[in-house]
Nucleic acid binder design. Sequence first.
DNA 1: TAGATTGTTAATCGATTAACAATC
DNA 2: TAGATTGTTAATCGATTAACAATC
Lengths: 240, 240
Amino acid sequence: MEKNEDMIETKNQPIPLPSLKRLPVYHRYLTGLKEEGAENVSASDIGGELHFLPIQVRKDIALTGIIGKPKLGWNVNELINHIENFLGWNNNKKALIAGVGSLGASILKYQGFRESGLDIVAGFDINEKLIDKEVNGIKILNMADMPKLIKRMKIKIGIITTPASAAQETAKIMEEAGISAIWNFAPATLHLKKTTIILYESMVSSLAVLSKKIEMEAKKIINARKQEVDYGEFKMHQKV
Amino acid sequence: MEKNEDMIETKNQPIPLPSLKRLPVYHRYLTGLKEEGAENVSASDIGGELHFLPIQVRKDIALTGIIGKPKLGWNVNELINHIENFLGWNNNKKALIAGVGSLGASILKYQGFRESGLDIVAGFDINEKLIDKEVNGIKILNMADMPKLIKRMKIKIGIITTPASAAQETAKIMEEAGISAIWNFAPATLHLKKTTIILYESMVSSLAVLSKKIEMEAKKIINARKQEVDYGEFKMHQKV
DNA sequence: TAGATTGTTAATCGATTAACAATC
DNA sequence: TAGATTGTTAATCGATTAACAATC
């Protein structure tokens, strides 16, 4: 059994984070294919549908350790299983969420996490009106009782959706109670032990990317027009 | 004026996306500093607080075109302004959101977007109970009226928070009405014109990153223990 | 068998980090 | 002046893309 686990571990290659983000996208497409009854799928099938290059799909999928067949591609079911195993969707991880405002509630209501191996067992808030209520079948408890539950259930993952002003304090409480990984949705930088894993989720950072993309696209169009004008006036120096 | 705009445009360097995501984080820290009355700030001040290397901070900030003073760093106010200008937070962009479920509502309620230059002018839904209601002062309208409003207000940014099953259709309607950039929170791949900008926001992809980080950390600890044992048994071959 | 597709090794591209001269 | 910090050029690292042999 222990030996077997060692066998299953794919060679200790480093895993590109972008690959990690793409794998759930492949998985979503594949489950659709499975429902349609598809047997096999190739890198160009996946890439064509999801707008990735086939070589990138091949590289990403190679990480899961699956062996495909030249000319056929991979078996759809087998590939789904390999991705799930690789991403750890088959061994559930317990988590809890602190702050059940509108964002926290929307996370509690999202069905996709459970099948991705994340089991949110409770929510915590300081708002009396929310305490002892349920959201999507998940009980909201008093924030004061959070450390107790973390210890009792040995919870390792904490999700923070409190206001920014409460994020640091909440994170510290989580850490001291035994949480080792924090998924932080509050717009605040956390100061924790080096060994504590933090993943920041920032919509404002995403928006920055979107805005720049829009700006660049606009500039591209303007430059294209400028060039047209240049040509129209018989100017020779392109500035592309 | 036109000439001036050309001057302000920093040299046409490519902008690393990760830098773009870090700039709002710097901005948040700087506004805090400003409130505390700080005059100047250095790369190591910022890096020390936010856990970045000073050289990375310097590189990122150089993108904004600000000129610092050796030994002093940058003027806090000036730096805030440069970041805001660079990210386009000073020229508002109108947007609308389709799907006012719990996630859509939490986006409507989030105050941070407005100061980041995103002005969500309306929400749309098919749920009769939501139509003509307001969320955070923003009116919810009938989805059927979305194209009209896009055209009338010349809105270019659409946010999708519908169920995954409605995302493609919604995106297509947005595109046909004149939207040129879509921020998609639904777990669905969109098929649109090549020129339409799409930014995917996927919590499941983020979760994949968090899970792997946890798994790697666990493995690191196990390996460290193995090594201790190896040393304990006077074995010579390290496997790190 | 011929052709398509995998898996692997090599080349390119982009982002981070290092080194260091300029300068306040 | 001496020391700290910027801004720039070079080196390294990581991810993507290309090339191609293996093979079904």
